[in-house]
């Protein structure tokens, strides 16, 4: 027996959630599938593989104000930004939820990033297990899986006429009104079969491959745009700048990418990562070598977005495979 919610009850419930908090869910915008703030439940898309952009925007916005500086009568005051409203994200896939858990490592490591912590504390995740998968998906090779309940508050799995509901945390419990769930004799559909990527031992192989010309050859093709970083649920580099208008000053942080030229160039001109190959290597080393060393987990969760979006087919699955097989020149 499983806990069950009918499609009709789900819509009613989402409508209630929308009244009391921000409800964020997949929507169709032109040809894209994007997580958007929902004004009417009819806009929610239920039938999808995964969204074009990751839901990281809702924990770690592409741009956000860290604090305001107000200057009045010779006095300066700092006013930190505060996240007021609770948010529920509906339809997050297990891979993306895992992505957020990965971002917790750098952002919540003490001293924690205050805004990120506020977003995280005030956001509940209602996950949707994957019934189908994109050809580029490989989450099961990266420590998660299409039905992974590990990082959501409630996981829903679609079955005939409704969803199996797994309530996994207190936060999830608090979202549900009493008696909304019934029990039903339904069982979970099989998880989709995903392509296998040989991620075992990749950190060590990445270390061995670090000085190989492989990266320069790969960078021949890379155009060094920021697409991979910005569609990625676990890329978290940022830039910080001040904005000034008549009234006040804001300190704003925005996403940045290690791929952009000048990312590491310091005032005065020195750039420790000036070649295309070293920049490209940084992205993959961060995910597959540095992140595991720092936090004990891979920094890629296998959502496949970078594979889909890269204009020149830099394919992390192929890179992992190639690095595993690379014959490293022994140092003579």
């Amino acid at each position: 027996m499983s806990e069950f919610i009918s499609k009709k009850d789900l819509l009613t419930w989402l409508g209630q959630l929308m009244e009391e908090r921000n409800l964020v869910a997949p929507t169709r915008v032109d040809d894209l599938l994007l997580f958007s703030k929902i004004d009417q439940v009819e806009d929610i898309v239920f039938d999808f593989d995964n969204t074009t952009l990751s839901p990281k925007e809702w924990f770690y916005p592409s741009s956000e104000t860290l604090f305001y500086v107000e200057q009045k009568d010779g006095q300066t005051e700092l006013i930190p930004a505060v996240i007021e409203k609770e948010t529920a994200i509906f339809g997050i896939r297990p891979c993306d939820a895992q992505g957020m858990a990965m971002n917790d490592f750098p952002f919540l490591e003490e001293p924690a990033d205050d805004l990120y912590r506020q977003h995280r504390d005030k956001t509940a995740l209602i996950g949707l297990a994957c019934i189908t998968a994109c050809p580029e998906c490989f989450c099961s090779s990266m420590g998660s899986g299409p039905h992974d309940p590990a990082n959501v508050d409630i996981l829903l799995t679609e079955v005939a006429d409704g969803y199996i509901a797994q309530v996994l945390t207190d936060k999830g419990k608090a979202l549900l009104p009493d008696n909304l769930l019934t029990t039903a004799d339904v069982s979970s559909p099989p998880a989709p079969v995903l392509s296998e990527v040989p991620s075992d031992g990749i950190a060590e192989k990445m270390r061995q491959a670090f000085d190989e010309p492989f990266w320069d050859r790969l960078a021949d093709r890379c155009i060094h745009c920021n697409i991979c970083s910005y569609v990625c649920p676990t890329c978290y580099c940022f830039d910080v700048r001040d904005y000034t208008d008549k009234e006040r000053i804001e300190r704003v942080r925005s996403w940045e990418s290690c791929q952009s030229p000048g990312f590491t160039r310091i005032a005065g001109g020195h750039d420790p990562r000036s070649t295309k190959g070293s920049r490209l290597r940084q992205r993959f080393s961060h995910k597959l070598l540095y992140f595991p060393r720092q936090f004990g987990a891979l920094g890629c969760i296998g959502c496949g977005r970078c594979v889909r979006a890269c204009p020149v087919n830099i394919d992390i699955r192929e890179i992992i495979q190639d690095v595993q097989q690379l014959e490293v020149k022994s140092e003579a």
Binding site: P106, E109, F238, S285, H286
Partner: peptide, 16 residues
């Protein structure tokens, strides 16, 4: 080049 001083903005790393 660094933006945070906390190991979070991921800019000033040299290797890990």
């Amino acid at each position: 080049k660094m933006k945070c001083g906390l190991g979070k903005c991921a800019r000033c790393n040299v290797g890990d």
